[in-house]
């Protein structure tokens, strides 16, 4: 016995080695059996947390990629949504009438982009030349005048809002028909100015301003707004009206695009006058 102990003591290094190797093999065998779970596995608190931290870190590096994938997927899913399909606004129809000639064609559209805070504001509509929209068509809604079409593409069109620095909307006082012109001098989107109203018109606050027949763009009598205040500026022969626009430009949604069927004829006729005037001036 003493010999054995002294033998082990002399070779303790080797026996320790054997002991460690045996325990290693016990671990290996244990980890290979299906019945028992391995004592050492990457789900323990140290390695598990380390792997979790690393994967958190890796996620940050891959965020761009992940974002791109999610955006792609979102776009794909959104494409399948019902709301991404428009009902085609094919509501144009013609009537053959021998007494009345159809002058205005209304097409229903939707505002998909609009601004109110710039000096010259624009609107984008979801209908275009395929739906019959043409340049210089009027844009109105149930509340009143909105603008007129600037450019068209097959399925979209852009329009000048009447909140624009170039005035193009002839209008009149509804109750007596005196002509004026609508301009917008920037600032508040709820108010506009009507100039050139004759001084003899007896106005009160709240009088209605509508579009006049002088326009080859807008139908006559479309609501513009109500008189808020009026004044006669120094040395001016006309009244300047501050009006409250009836249409809420912050809530534009469905609009009508109005096409004037006789615009071309009227324009070409008026062009002759313009040319003659030019000749005279020369």
């Amino acid at each position: 016995m003493r010999n054995l102990i002294s033998f082990i003591y002399r070779n303790h290094f080797f026996f320790l080695f054997l002991l460690l190797e045996v325990s290693c093999f016990v671990l290996i065998i244990q980890s290979r059996s299906y019945q028992s779970t391995s004592l050492l596995n990457s789900a323990n608190s140290v390695s598990g947390n380390l792997y979790a931290a690393v994967s958190n870190g890796r996620e940050y590096l891959l965020l761009k990629d992940a974002n791109l994938k999610l955006a792609d997927e979102n776009a794909r899913l959104r494409n399948q949504l019902k709301s991404s399909y428009d009902i085609l606004p094919q509501k144009v129809f013609t009537i053959n009438d021998t007494l009345y000639r159809k002058k205005y064609v209304y097409t229903q559209g939707k505002v998909i982009n609009s601004t109110t805070n710039r000096r010259s504001n624009y609107i984008t509509l979801n209908i275009g030349s395929d739906q019959g929209v043409e340049k210089d068509n009027a844009v109105i809604n149930t509340d009143g005048v909105i603008g007129w079409v600037k450019d068209v593409s097959p399925n979209f069109s852009t329009a000048y809002s009447i909140l624009h620095k170039d005035p193009k909307v002839p209008c009149k006082v509804k109750k007596d028909g005196s002509y004026g012109g609508l301009i917008w001098d920037g600032g508040d989107y709820r108010y506009a100015t009507v100039i050139d109203i004759p001084t003899h018109v007896r106005l009160i606050k709240g009088d209605t301003i509508v579009t006049s027949a002088l326009s080859d763009i807008f139908p006559e009598g479309v609501m513009v707004g109500f008189v808020e205040s009026f004044e006669r500026k120094q040395g001016d022969a006309f009244l300047t009206l501050k009006i409250k626009l009836n249409a809420d430009f912050k809530k534009l949604n469905y609009v009508y695009v109005v096409k004037n069927n006789s615009k071309l004829e009227q324009d070409s006729l008026e062009l002759i006058i313009t040319k003659e005037e030019e000749k005279k001036n020369k």
Partner: peptide, 24 residues
């Protein structure tokens, strides 16, 4: 060596293979 091997085993799910190799 044994501890080093066990550490590796904990991360690689290799039971005690790294430990055995390291001890040797």
């Amino acid at each position: 060596s044994f501890v080093l091997g066990l550490t590796m085993d904990a991360f690689y799910d290799t039971g005690g293979m790294h430990a055995a190799a390291c001890v040797l």
